Amino acid sequence: MLLLAKLQVKPTLIEEIKSKKPLDITLFPHIKQIEQGKIKDFTSNDKGAFCFQGRFCVPKDEELRQTILREA
């Protein structure tokens, strides 16, 4: 019996969200306000991802958003 397998290593969605966060300039003002303790609805979770009321803020990246939709 012959068994062929293919293993692909991909970053998790959280890692992809974190890596693309610096590319979305619309998130910068919120990040500054979080660091200064001025807003409470926006947070940075323990993995470094940016969240609004406990939900991930996904950077404006069409490929990433499509990936998330496909996974869902």
Rank of each mutant, 00 (worst) to 15 (best):
M1P: 13
L2I: 14
L3E: 06
L3W: 01
L4E: 13
L4I: 13
A5Y: 09
K6I: 10
L7P: 01
L7W: 07
P11R: 08
P11Q: 05
L13S: 08
I14P: 03
E15D: 14
E15W: 04
E16N: 12
K18N: 12
K18S: 05
S19C: 11
K21P: 03
P22G: 07
P22Q: 07
P22C: 05
L23D: 14
L23N: 14
L23P: 00
D24F: 09
D24I: 09
L27H: 07
L27I: 11
F28C: 13
F28L: 15
F28N: 15
I34F: 04
I34C: 06
E35W: 08
E35I: 14
Q36E: 11
Q36C: 03
K38I: 01
K38N: 08
K40T: 14
K40Y: 04
D41V: 04
F42Y: 15
S44E: 02
N45F: 01
G48T: 13
F50E: 00
F52K: 13
F52P: 04
G54T: 07
R55W: 05
F56L: 14
C57N: 10
C57W: 04
V58I: 15
K60T: 02
E62M: 08
E63N: 08
E63R: 11
R65N: 12
T67L: 06
I68F: 02
I68R: 03
L69V: 10
L69P: 00
E71T: 03
